[in-house]
Amino acid sequence: MIEISDLWFDYDGFPVLRGVSLKIELGEVVAIMGENGAGKTTLIRHFNGLLKPKRGYVKVFGVDTREATVAELSRRVGLVFQNPDHQLFAETVFDEVAFALKNFGFPEDVIERRVEWVLKMLDLYDLKDRSPFSLSGGERKRVAIASILSYDPDIIVFDEPTVGQDYGQKERLAQLIKLLKSQSKIIVVVTHDVEFVAENFPRVVLLSKGRVIADGSTRRVLTDEKLIRRANLLLPQVTQVAKHLVEFGVPGDLMWVSEIRGAILKVLGRGCT
């Protein structure tokens, strides 16, 4: 699990995190949202010790990140960066994904199997002999994800994984997150994609100007217009429709098309088909 207590961090005196406290248990799927510059990426870089707290502490499975190396923490915490080019360097997609496994000393046959499995899952198998740098932005992003999943860390952190991904790829990413959840991993996703979160995440942590301004169920957080505004987000589109229809007795906290459809049919007196 991840335990963060009164975490403060600044870049050369420019404060980015101002007293963040947060607990995430195994098997949880959490979205971290907030405006540009809210401190989301800075926060998750503390999870594997890339950044160390200036005040407060971050503990990962009970280990204070100031007392462990990035290499030690990385074995259990996989961080998929926002810009895949910060992560990719190998000559082929296969080598890229196999790199960490080789580094951690896995036997050849395990490496083969794991890499094949993860490439197929992320729809990259046909590209395994290509150079990562010859791929599209969306494909490179998936290679970066594959290179982390291959070594099976307990905590997987995605920084803006839906950027540049089309609808089908987002659906696959959602399935992947469900699969990882079923393996009792911790999945933390930093994202602005309100629609993606409304459909797939049970819990949202809202950051604004370096502070946690809300932490709770997705329905409670994402349908609260005031909170959402403070974090520069928009309500999910279905919620926007619902709020426009409050005068017809439609509840203002709907998030899914199926819900609003039911509510509209009810307004029209056509029952709940």
């Binding site: 089309d166 790829q169 589109q237 429709v241 426009h244 609003i260 509209i264 049919l265």
Partner: peptide
């Protein structure tokens, strides 16, 4: 695999249930 906006999905869903809007809505 085109991410059709939710209001359009709603429009199509309702149409299948014989609720016909006379305009394809683009906003809430």
């Amino acid at each position: 695999g085109v991410g059709v906006p939710k209001v359009i999905q709603l429009y199509k869903d309702l149409k299948r249930r014989n609720v016909i809007f006379n305009l394809v809505p683009l906003t809430p």
